[in-house]
Simulated scan of single mutants.
Amino acid sequence: MMAAVVVAVAVVDQLVKTLMLGWLEPGQPVAVIGDWFRFTLLFNSGAAFSMGSDSTWLFTCIQIAFVVGVAVAAPRVHDRWTAVGLALIAGGAAGNLVDRLFREPAFFVGHVVDFISVGDFAVFNLADSAITVGVAVFVLGMFFGEQAGEHPDGVDEDATAPADTADDNDAEGEEPARA
């Protein structure tokens, strides 16, 4: 399931970016809901809010490491909240990673295509939204996810463990007291 979410987020992100690149002119806002919601095509070499614009290579490395890390960890993730959260984050990272690897100005240091502008907030894209929602889901899962010892399919793991056959009064390694 995680792989499907990662791929779906990355593919949808890239398809929408391609549509926006064909439709929008860089820096020319297109009002959708007045000045509050508009499309504005920008190319971001940095991270959120264009921070670290001189460190594009570092963000590329971080995104590669995260996507690979999630792929390696995925088989061991059993909590649904964690799985969905990590998959959304990895899908968003993968969508932006494609930009960094294959867009101008060069391989590995490409600029991310951003186009969603809400109010006076930063301009972002669908991959960024998936990352934000994924972090929220992951954090919510820490508080409301499956409880320890409960298997995600509803089976209590403790209930399937072999019962302890020792007398409850027995201390480990000691003989029971005789009357």
Results as ranks from 00 to 15, higher is better:
residue 116 I to P: 02
residue 99 D to Q: 08
residue 111 H to T: 03
residue 118 V to Y: 15
residue 117 S to Q: 12
residue 74 A to M: 12
residue 69 G to V: 01
residue 70 V to L: 01
residue 99 D to A: 09
residue 107 F to Y: 09
residue 80 R to E: 11
residue 98 V to G: 06
residue 142 M to Y: 13
residue 111 H to D: 05
residue 126 L to F: 11
residue 110 G to K: 10
residue 137 V to P: 03
residue 136 A to T: 05
residue 112 V to R: 04
residue 58 L to S: 04
residue 99 D to Y: 06
residue 136 A to G: 14
residue 67 V to G: 08
residue 129 S to Y: 04
residue 151 H to K: 08
residue 115 F to I: 12
residue 108 F to M: 12
residue 123 V to N: 07
residue 125 N to S: 10
residue 136 A to S: 13
residue 101 L to T: 06
residue 133 V to M: 05
residue 135 V to I: 15
residue 106 A to V: 09
residue 101 L to E: 07
residue 137 V to E: 03
residue 63 Q to N: 15
residue 150 E to K: 14
residue 65 A to F: 12
residue 153 D to H: 12
residue 110 G to S: 13
residue 136 A to H: 02
residue 78 H to D: 10
residue 87 A to D: 08
residue 133 V to I: 14
residue 153 D to A: 11
residue 80 R to F: 01
residue 60 T to V: 03
residue 117 S to Y: 10
residue 59 F to G: 00
residue 145 G to D: 06
residue 110 G to L: 09
residue 93 A to H: 03
residue 117 S to A: 15
residue 63 Q to C: 13
residue 64 I to L: 12
residue 94 A to Q: 02
residue 72 V to D: 12
residue 106 A to H: 02
residue 127 A to D: 11
residue 98 V to T: 05
residue 87 A to M: 12
residue 111 H to Y: 07
residue 153 D to M: 09
